[in-house]
Computed example of a mutant assay.
Amino acid sequence: MDAMRILMDEHQSLAAIIHAIRHMISEIGAGRLKPDHKLLEAMVHYLDAYPEKRHHPKEDEFLFGPLRARTHDADAALDRLEAEHAQAEARIAVLEAAVKGYAQDPVGGFEAFRTAFNAYAEFYRTHMMTEEREVLPLIRKHFTAEDWDRANAGFIADDPLSGSRATAKDGDENFAHIFSKLVAAAPAPIGLGAGPYKEG
């Protein structure tokens, strides 16, 4: 089941970035780490461009929609998840404003950024747990072979971590490369501590 494998890989990479940011915020707050504002902004951009714009649409099209056609058992959870997907732009706007505010005001903006990011992280923890504990078991139970074929093909055709996209566009980002750069720039023990984040 390639769709399930890719989905879980994407969840794990998202959880890793969220964990990295929370760890850095904790270390900055404790005075043990100097903030790298470009790295924090790059991580927030990754959260927008990867899970919000690429991951969620695949879930809606290839998993949630077909599941609705097979059973009503997941309707309540799917209503909640799809509403949360639709709120992506507003959710990211709050985070982007907070990280930019922190860069502009390193003293006064820190607490606002920490509060905004902790809220975002808690939202995603609950969101992914709902998907994995309530929805994925029902997908495994109710999907037909045809549903799986379509879901697998859809996820393989747009697998950001492998760099595949059936309809690649100019400006598409190489998320595997970006993820590697973020991990390299993040301080130990969550990353390699290779130094300040550099774009490109």
Rank of each mutant, 00 (worst) to 15 (best):
A49R: 12
K53G: 06
P137A: 05
S162F: 09
D105L: 15
D172S: 03
H11I: 10
A188I: 10
A157F: 09
I21N: 01
V44G: 00
H142Y: 14
M129S: 13
F113K: 00
R70C: 09
E89N: 08
L39M: 14
L14P: 00
D172N: 06
I21F: 04
H142F: 13
R133T: 07
E89T: 10
P137Y: 07
A3C: 14
A77C: 11
I25W: 00
A69I: 11
D149E: 15
R80S: 07
R54W: 10
P66Y: 04
A20F: 00
I21K: 02
G29A: 08
R32H: 13
H85F: 06
K38V: 11
R5C: 09
K100C: 14
A185F: 03
A93Y: 02
F110H: 08
D158C: 14
L138N: 00
D48W: 14
F179A: 15
V94R: 07
H19F: 12
P57F: 06
Y124C: 04
E27V: 00
D79F: 11
I25D: 05
R32M: 11
I6E: 04
A69D: 15
V99G: 04
I139C: 01
E122I: 03
S164W: 09
K100H: 15
D9L: 11
Y50W: 07
M4I: 08
E96G: 10
Y124M: 08
G193R: 01
E41S: 12
A194P: 01
E146I: 04
G163N: 06
A168T: 15
M43A: 10
T115W: 05
A86G: 03
E146S: 12
